[in-house]
């Protein structure tokens, strides 16, 4: 299963990068979300997969079956939440930008260079 998920990660990255390279800011943001999803999945995946035994420990009982690694879950959770903040801010920025300039085309954004 890891192989398939790794391929999923790769494809998510592919889609993400492809969208990042578009000219529309909206697509760019979507690409960013894809990248971020791919990264989360990558982090989750690389720590190893344990199906069906969530990391809940009961009082006193020593765990018999190997429980899933809780740490990457916590990491990804933090990353997701941070990602939310960032995505929403990006959206707001994009919206404001469109409101001010009336364009969604990244190629129009050339005034601050040079």
């Amino acid at each position: 299963m890891e192989i398939i998920l790794a391929i999923v990660v790769g494809l998510l990255y592919t889609v993400g990068v492809y969208l990042l390279l578009r000219r529309s800011i909206l697509k760019f943001i979507i690409g960013l979300i894809f990248m971020s999803n791919a990264t989360n999945l990558l982090v989750f995946l690389s720590a190893g997969l344990v199906p069906g035994s969530p990391a809940f420990v009961q009082a006193g009982s020593g765990s018999s079956a190997p429980l899933a690694d809780p740490l990457p879950q916590a990491l990804v959770l933090t990353a997701i939440v941070i990602g939310l903040g960032i995505v929403v801010f990006t959206l707001a920025l994009k919206y404001k930008f469109f409101e001010t300039t009336g364009t969604d085309d990244l190629d129009q954004l050339k005034k601050t260079d040079n």
């Binding site: 344990v50 199906p51 069906g52 429980l67 899933a68 990804v76 997701i80």
Partner: peptide
């Protein structure tokens, strides 16, 4: 979810 990350 399948891989045991409920909160996540």
């Amino acid at each position: 979810l399948y891989y045991s990350a409920v909160d996540l």
